[in-house]
Amino acid sequence: MKRVKVVPVGMLKNYLSETVRANPAQTVHQLLDGLGIPADLVAVVMVNGRQEPKSYLLQEGDQVKLVPLVGGGQTLVEERMLK
């Protein structure tokens, strides 16, 4: 069985620090639950380059990218960046 590749983006790395492999035959919702990622914080789910709803049933070999709400939530105001 080819597993699913799950790539977290941006602040979702707080929940999932790196790319992981997961089982297919579950929905994205179930996947997020299993990984402990709050679904509300995932703005866009891209599967093989297309957006899918969280009810999407993962297939063998899928490449899943979880894109967070970056939206203004992150304010990286630090002096170091001005150097």
Partner: peptide, 22 residues
């Protein structure tokens, strides 16, 4: 940016479903 792909594919419409979900 890892968000480039979804942002350019969908633009702001990418969040339509999310907004509905929440």
């Amino acid at each position: 940016s890892e968000a480039w792909e979804s942002w350019t594919r969908l633009g702001t419409s990418g969040v339509n479903m999310w907004s509905d979900e929440v």
